[in-house]
């Protein structure tokens, strides 16, 4: 599985969205991406890439696109 596939999978499974919803997806714009969904998403990303995200990055993770930028900080190329 490529990194991008892993990244997408984390969103699909933790937020229960379909792939066509991913582009432009933002925090709190859909019901499932609330604070609980956010923590599930963080856990899924950490699990998928074997990382532990900094609190600042968890707070900054405001969209599907922003998440890609944050992943780069952890040397994860998508």
């Amino acid at each position: 599985m490529t990194n991008l596939e892993k990244y997408k999978k984390a969103f699909l499974e933790s937020l229960e969205v379909s792939e066509d919803q991913l582009e432009g997806l933002e925090y709190q714009k859909i019901e499932s991406w609330d604070s609980v969904g956010h923590m599930n998403l963080v856990a899924a990303l950490e699990e998928a890439f074997d990382i532990m995200m900094d609190t600042d990055d968890i707070i900054d993770l405001s969209s599907y696109e922003k998440g890609k930028e944050i992943m780069r900080k952890y040397d994860i190329e998508l």
Partner: peptide
């Protein structure tokens, strides 16, 4: 506590 919860939540 915040760090531990990351592991414990899983």
């Amino acid at each position: 506590l915040q760090l531990a919860v990351k592991l414990m939540s899983r």
